[in-house]
Design a protein around this nucleic acid. Sequence first.
DNA 1: CCTTTGTAATGAATCGATTCATTTGTGAAC
DNA 2: GTTCACAAATGAATCGATTCATTACAAAGG
Lengths: 338, 338
Amino acid sequence: MPGGPGAKLKDVAALAGVSVGTVSNVLNRPEQVSPDKRNRVLAAIDELGFVRNESARSLRSGSTRSLGMLVLDVRNPFFTDVAMGAENVAEDHKHSLILANSAEDSGREQAYLDLFEQQRVQGILITPFGQVLERLETMRSRGIPSVLVDRLARTDQFCSVSVDDVAGGKAALAHLLDVGSVRPAFVGGPFTLQQVEDRYRGAAEAAERAGVPIQLFETPDLKFDRGRQVGDLISKLEAAVRPDAVFAANDQLALGLLQSFAANGVRVPEDIAIVGFDDIDFASQSSIPLTSISQPRQLIGERAAELLFDEINDQPGHVHSQVVFTPELVARQSTRRR
Amino acid sequence: MPGGPGAKLKDVAALAGVSVGTVSNVLNRPEQVSPDKRNRVLAAIDELGFVRNESARSLRSGSTRSLGMLVLDVRNPFFTDVAMGAENVAEDHKHSLILANSAEDSGREQAYLDLFEQQRVQGILITPFGQVLERLETMRSRGIPSVLVDRLARTDQFCSVSVDDVAGGKAALAHLLDVGSVRPAFVGGPFTLQQVEDRYRGAAEAAERAGVPIQLFETPDLKFDRGRQVGDLISKLEAAVRPDAVFAANDQLALGLLQSFAANGVRVPEDIAIVGFDDIDFASQSSIPLTSISQPRQLIGERAAELLFDEINDQPGHVHSQVVFTPELVARQSTRRR
DNA sequence: CCTTTGTAATGAATCGATTCATTTGTGAAC
DNA sequence: GTTCACAAATGAATCGATTCATTACAAAGG
């Protein structure tokens, strides 16, 4: 069973007493080989511990069996969930997914695209960070298509899978009003992030429609610590002017707010209700379970991978499409009606 | 700049008016090429948009520039942090890291090892799930070494990087006693997991040394929901017999306990103190920040990758070594002295 | 002026699997 | 008995870069 290190196709053929072409056929089109020889070949493979050399395979055949996926931050559970969805679809197509992390760094982003190009991946799933759309178009013209993930393609040059953040923002604020808020606030930023912009816009629309003003607390990023800072700020306001509900642009911020409020004796939801966005696992696992806007993370990854395979296989006839999911509000204790 | 799709080395050579060997040298040993030709070649590469074919490169040269990493669960922030550490080291060595997720499934684990073998990765970082040590030894004998991550190698056949869970357990319980606990409990399971076993053993030793009995709540897994279930159970106990402190085998469980206690009106830390294990981000981000045992996650990944490169480069002279980090207790509000 | 030494450059052979045009073999049909 | 159709098997050519033995050339030494 062990076999010497590095048996090759030729060795298998010799041991099985067949030609190399036949061994190759057993590997790639077993149904075209007579059962007799097929078994002999399989036995030889087993005996020699033969493992096909993927480099040689893809060099000759001209195509690899892999996709590249480039995300903004592997540490964010949102992206690992999306990646798992994509991976499952890739697996169905007998492809493997190479997961890379641009870590919100243009240099790394470019480096990984270089790598994908050298490896001749069949296609790329990407949450773009820097200015890469032009390069992606070039890559497509050279035979490597890509699909934008968690980001709506403005042009019709790409397929994309994203979530309707405006609708999400609207739902969040509508819910807050519904549980009785009269002084809602929005916490988030920077507004250069399309998602923050959209979520705020949705919330503002809903507020305006109800004739309620909305306070704005802008943050330089979406991390936990910012949430805590803003929370400390809000806690110090006089009860008469203090918001009675907060919509945070993501769950990290919301958790920061929650921790600050707990530390400052502001009760949630009695004094202030909170809605987050993303519905990461830890939203529901917080001491006070957090109401949040839930995105179909795994589904996003699946659809993106499906679109990509569609483009890979269909090539000329492919029409780009933009899939937009509508997120859903999941009500929990942090907005329980007072 | 765009260039036709798929320029190859030969085309570059033709355009630059040099031989293919020279172009290859520019790519691999630029210092051995005269500046004049080097520049002409680089210009040609740029003009044609040439991208080297990694399959051809590694087929001929006999070695790839990649490592495989196989973790138990990409969704667990612990592993993504470890992976980031490993990735950084791989990058320093101009290698790329292929991250794969066995998702605690033996089938997937085997499938990814197949893949790594076919891709001829230079080495493998793995948190084993099923019975794979024997296979890993076979793979090493065929030229693909591996390092065990977050798991102590019992044999001296492997390098490994892990954490001293016994010491961690000891520290956790010592801390609880230190803040005044007289009826501590341990929550976790199954005990077939080496880590659970070790953490409990450490805690039990510390308790025994102090002459304090320790209650045991065994769970079938380490997930959040189990923590909540056990929490509900504990909350219902009469105050006189109820534990006054809990050491949870990981942070997920601890967060579950915390949520349950909050819901049942059991105050933390006044009524019950809690210590977790792993110190994931969400431990500190909980409403009541959680005391936890912190592991140097990134460092674990870095050291593991370094050991792997050591073995890859040193081959015959390599001596396997077991790196064991001692975890550190980070005290937070959940164990604040009453 | 010839030889030696060393650096640059060359290009044919090579890595290991796949492909495909060709050959071989088998049974059915006439 | 011969022909035909079709399935199975063959093996040389091929993918694109790297390698390395060889050649070309220049400078230095005698």
